[in-house]
Each structure stands twice: as structure tokens, then as C-alpha cells.
Design a binder for these strands. Structure first.
Lengths: 222, 222
DNA sequence: ATTGTCGGTTAACGTCCGGTTAAGGCAACT
DNA sequence: AGTTGCCTTAACCGGACGTTAACCGACAAT
């Protein structure tokens, strides 16, 4: 289990990270809303601890964007705003819990455990670097970008991501998608080409690599 | 959606029941721990609002018994005990949230919705973006517009909304509506067509998407 | 330098899938 | 019996998708 902490007060953030670490909960950290969304695209967190007053993009907006995108990850708001309206705004945006500063660390931990244990019974999701494939949603993303893939494109990507970062032999790919009968199938070349165009074309760093005379692999650069 | 309220202060309990009713949330009521456990055995509630100071069996014990029995129903503790130890005891027993008296009704409602929304959406009302379906009234709306749907159209929409934003496979839809044997049923195409005409035709943004060679999904655009 | 292998790229084409429409049947209601 | 609403069936259409084949470039061996 791993959580994302979004908090711009450095001291508080450090304290929370430390306490979570004591409980054996790994924790990534963002100090603004934009960075939070980027990290969420890149990693499969189990829940989010979200401050509301944030630079660049406030917490409520971050939460709304996630919900609109169909993301159901549990979200705990963490803020000094204690009026009823603020709380309700947090829940309206799709938050799951709301904790007011100052709070006891032990209570935060308790709420984190309660929230993160629940939900997403099968968040079947494969991910390498900022390339992710949600098997429930049947949707692949590269960073913020939704990828429009054909059924075989998805199947191909799934095979590659399951093995990642190890390469998959052409024979194995053909077998997985076309069944045993797949002699000198040229189709694979074409599909790989389309997949590569969808994944890597507009990007800086290529993820889909070809291993000569063997097969293909999805792997982030060093 | 229906919740169980366990609270021995009669005035408070009545007020909560009224507020929940205003939100369209049906609510059963127990005034002691033993009765609560009995009701929980007999009815499939969506969540429990649980006072801690109760006659016959206190709330924490009720919660523990449920968890030991493997029951994962969300539990919201509602109590005047505001010390950190009390809260931690509540979470340790397997509680999901902890609200301290006195509280604002609106906050309770918000937390109830947040908690009950998670896990097995049995809600009497399903909603995605501005598309909503009231299962009691058997009526769907898109924004202000009432949708005139046939029985199968409603059933179809219900299946899709329950899974939203995840797609539902054609096989699953056929199974849900026609029963297991629904071979190469062409009807699905026609009904989807009618549903789409009702939902999306006069609108800017389409919500009903087709996932090729798999099924359909209701999902708001990014 | 020539040749062969391997992978990338592109275009053409045929098939399949989903969308659309119209007609027929069935049941409930008038 | 006639009407109405709803579901099903069937046929047709268009576009997306997959396959095939041809060509190109890189690289290694001869």
C-alpha cells in the first residue's frame, strides 16, 4: 500500500511522512496541486491525503478533476478550514473524509488506515512509468493523455505490461493474441507499429523497445 | 440505500431520521446494541451510524462483533466522547469514521453519503454527470429533462450506471436483462440505440460510449 | 560490394462490428 | 376487435479494424 500526500507546509508534511513510515506505509509527496495530478497519473496509489490550500491548484479542484475522470481513489482532506461550508465543499467534490488542523497524528493514521483498506477491491491496473492500463475501464493512458487503442492494441499492450520490464518474445505475443496458430504473422509488426505510434509518438522518452530477433519490451529508460 | 441508526437519545435519533429522510435515505432505528445486531442480521443495510454509549451492548463492542464475523459494512461512530483515545478505540474496533457530538446535521449527511457511496452501490439513486436514475420512481433524468424510457431501457441504464465509469460487457448486459441464455441477441443493439437516442441525442456531450468488441460504458468526458 | 535477414512503414483491401431503420408479433388496454 | 406500446427480428450500411503484401533501410555475413 502506498499513499500520496499533498501538502505545502513542509514541516507538517515531513512529520506526516515520518509517522506514516513508522506504520510501514510508504508515501509519496507533492507540494502543489499540479504535481499531485501528475504523480497520480504515474503511480497507482491506494489513497490521497490532500491539503486544500495549495499552490497552483487547490485541493478541492484536484479532487473534482479526479472524480470527473472516473478515479475512485479514496481522498482525505486535510485543512485548517473548519467551517461547515468548507467541509461540505470537500465532500461535494467527492472527498471521503475531512480532518481539521491541528489534529493528532494518531487520528490521521487511524483514518488513513480506515480509508485505504476499503474500496477498490479490484483496481486491476498495470503501470510502467507514466504509461498505465486500467483493465476495468479498458483504457490506457500516457500521463494525462487517453490513448485510443483498438482491441488488439489493448491486448498487445496488456501482454507487454504484464511482463514489463522483461521482453516478450514474438512467438509468445502471437500465441497470446491469435492462439497457437500464428505462423509467420506479419500482423504483429503492424500492430506494434500502431501501438508505438499511440504510445511514444508525441513523447520525449520512448517506452516500447524492440529486442532484435526476439521480441518487444516496455521499459522506462534509466 | 438504507442505513441503520443506533442511538439511544430519542430526540437526536428522531432528528437524524428526519434529516436522512429529507435526503431520501431510508433508515431503520435501534436504541440499543443487542437490537442493532439483530436488525443487522435480518436486513442488508448499506451502512451503520453507531452511538458508542448504548444500553445493553456498547457501540464499540457491536462494531467489533461485526468485524470478527467478517462483516465489512461501513460504520460511522457518533459520540460525545472526544478524546483521542476514544477515537482510536473506535477505529481500532473497525470503525470507518468518527463524528463528535454536537455536530451539524449537514456534516453527518455528507459523511453518511461519502461512506455509503463506497462499497456495493445499492443506492436508490444512481448518477453520473448530469444523468441520474431514481430507482424508486423508476425515472431517469438528463439535467432538467425527464427521459421516457421503456422497462428494458431502464434496466439497461441501471446496469450501466451501477458499473460507471467502467464498461459493462455485452455478455454481462445480456445476462442481466435476458438471463443466462441470450445468445447472439441483436436486441441489445436496438435497445442501446434507443437509450442513446434518449440520453445523448439532444445534448452536447455524449455519455454513452461503446467499447468496441467488448461492451458499453457511461462516462463523462475528461 | 553484394546479398540476405530483420524490422519499420505504408497503402490497399476485405471482413467484421456496430448503428440504423423498418416491419412483424405479442400483450395489455380501450 | 382495434389500438397502442414494446420487444424482437432481419436486413442494410458504413466505418473501423485486421490482414496482406510490397517497399525501404539498417545491419551482418559472405
Amino acid at each position: 500500500m502506498s499513499v500520496l500526500l499533498v501538502e505545502d507546509e513542509r514541516n507538517l508534511a515531513d512529520a506526516i511522512v515520518d509517522y506514516l513510515a513508522l506504520e510501514g506505509i510508504p508515501c509519496d509527496y507533492a507540494d502543489n496541486g499540479v504535481m499531485a495530478l501528475e504523480l497520480l497519473c504515474q503511480h497507482p496509489y491506494q489513497m490521497v491525503i490532500l491539503d486544500i490550500n495549495l499552490p497552483r491548484l487547490d485541493g478541492v479542484t484536484v479532487c473534482q478533476r479526479l472524480r470527473v475522470a472516473g478515479e475512485r481513489i479514496p481522498i482525505l482532506f486535510l485543512t485548517a478550514k473548519d467551517t461547515l461550508e468548507d467541509k461540505l465543499a470537500g465532500f461535494d467534490a467527492g472527498g471521503d473524509d475531512y480532518l481539521i488542523k491541528p489534529f493528532a497524528m494518531a487520528e490521521l493514521i487511524a483514518r488513513v488506515k480506515a480509508l485505504s483498506g476499503r474500496l477498490s477491491p479490484q483496481a486491476r491496473r498495470l503501470q510502467v512509468a507514466d504509461l498505465s492500463l486500467d483493465l476495468n475501464l479498458h483504457q490506457a493512458r500516457r500521463g494525462q493523455r487517453e490513448l485510443a487503442l483498438s482491441p488488439t492494441g489493448l491486448a498487445l499492450l496488456e501482454q507487454l505490461l504484464r511482463a514489463a520490464p522483461a521482453p516478450v518474445s514474438k512467438a509468445a505475443l502471437i500465441d497470446a493474441i491469435w492462439g497457437a496458430e500464428g505462423d509467420d504473422n506479419n500482423s504483429l509488426k503492424v500492430h506494434i507499429h500502431k501501438l508505438r505510434k499511440a504510445i511514444d509518438r508525441p513523447e520525449e522518452v520512448p517506452l516500447l523497445r524492440t529486442i532484435k530477433s526476439h521480441g518487444y519490451a516496455i521499459k522506462a529508460p534509466e
